[in-house]
Design a protein around this nucleic acid. Structure first.
Lengths: 240, 240
DNA sequence: ACCTGAACACCGTTCAAGT
DNA sequence: ACCTGAACACCGTTCAAGT
């Protein structure tokens, strides 16, 4: 084990928060969520386990920092590209978030259990509100829609990553669909509709399904309201 | 601690899988996800920790059984009520799933990491496909839509439950919104759009937000396609 | 402030043995 | 088959002590 997360030997630089977070991400990448223990991080960074408490009050605090670092790897510029429609920008961005998280197995559940109030999360949220404003949503609806989109993206990837076998390549969707298909065994008499759609169900992990759901969701945002509007009695939202 | 999950004293009945799962749910309810250890379950059931390996190959297998038992507490009849429109049925069902999961803190992340192939999950999925067929979706779109809905419901509740403080009442949304509002501190110069919507953001955990998102999603399912259809080159879906 | 050794109260899982 | 005691290889966190 190297002294620091950079792998550079020699006398140890003074340890910093960033080094610890980087080492934690490294463990996550190699061994998944279960490999991310405080003791392992401490070992990777060349320090006694309890030394980490100088930098993070609890393990949870470290995990939140890991979360925000991963969000920092997403290309937020995709949301700002003025050459594309708002819809294309959202789709490309959603694909980038998914690809980033799939490259770090175990990160999606981690994101779902984080407050998402770090600097990268805030920056992404702000950019998202801008795109949704361009799409014609008033500020309140834009905020609601941004939460809807975040939930969709993170929920989908969390589902996806949950069933990853530790040895499988997280980026090979086709192989995973095939293995899902082989494992499916639905009694056709009891569940006829389900059984008849086994192919589609096996491909729930596909990019195609991901985009299908995203576009249905954007369709729902991109039209007049039909139902279920329950505004607070206080007043209507401003349509700026 | 009673000998069995039923609390009935006296000579122990022969232990069954169901007793173990029931005890696990009890621990989940009392202490959240972290209280659900094999050793605690074994103690609750009056047995040595390793005795559980007679019934479940791993802890994960037990968790999957817990997951399906929780799904069994949802009222699937809500999807079949012929007196209501498909949209109302889906909304009522989604509310019931949410209420059930919020009553069991820690269960949502558990569901997200389960294969959802147990009997109750299959039954719910089959009923869902039926409702979506009524809504006018062809079988393939219905399957895709059911996954979209599941992701939305479970993802939202997982997000929601993630930030639950152990002492808070999981069913008091208003109190949690207030505490979220108090914790929010967004620099308005850096994130103007975000800061201006702090009230809405604080209420992300509300039933109102949940229904808003659900209805946007149903709006997206309930209209002709606009974009993003990328069917596999092999052939088009059958329109039965 | 930053780090240490030692300890505490836990984990999931395996093994050999008993009935 | 069902269950046990004992052990293995871990956890996160705290405490007192050192610099």
């Amino acid at each position: 084990m190297a002294h620091s997360a950079t792998g550079r030997p020699g006398p140890r630089r003074s340890l910093a928060e960033g080094d610890i977070v980087a080492a934690a991400v490294g463990l996550l990448d190699q061994g998944g969520a279960s490999a991310l223990s405080l003791r392992a991080v401490a070992a990777a960074v060349g320090v006694a386990p309890n030394a980490l408490y100088t930098y993070f009050r609890t393990k949870t605090a470290l995990l939140h920092a890991v979360t925000d670092r991963l969000l920092g790897q997403v290309d937020h510029q995709l949301l700002a590209d003025p050459a594309r429609t708002w819809r294309d920008r959202l789709a490309l961005y959603a694909l980038d978030v998914r690809a980033t998280l799939l490259a770090h197995p175990g990160s999606a559940p981690l994101l779902l259990s984080s407050p998402l109030d770090g600097p990268h999360a805030l920056a992404a949220g702000e950019a998202l509100l801008g795109v949704l404003a361009e799409a014609g949503l008033d500020p309140e609806d834009a905020a609601r829609a941004s939460y809807l989109l975040m939930t969709y993206v993170l929920g989908t990837v969390a589902f996806d990553v949950a069933e990853l076998e530790p040895d499988a390549d997280p980026l090979d969707n086709d192989a995973r669909t095939a293995s899902r298909r082989a494992a499916l065994d639905i009694p056709a008499e009891q569940y006829p509709r389900t059984a008849s759609q086994a192919e589609v169900i096996a491909a729930y992990n596909s990019t195609e399904q991901y985009l299908w759901g995203l576009h249905r969701l954007l369709d729902g945002l991109d039209q007049p309201r039909t139902d279920g509007e329950r505004r607070s009695p206080g007043g209507r939202a401003a349509r700026t």
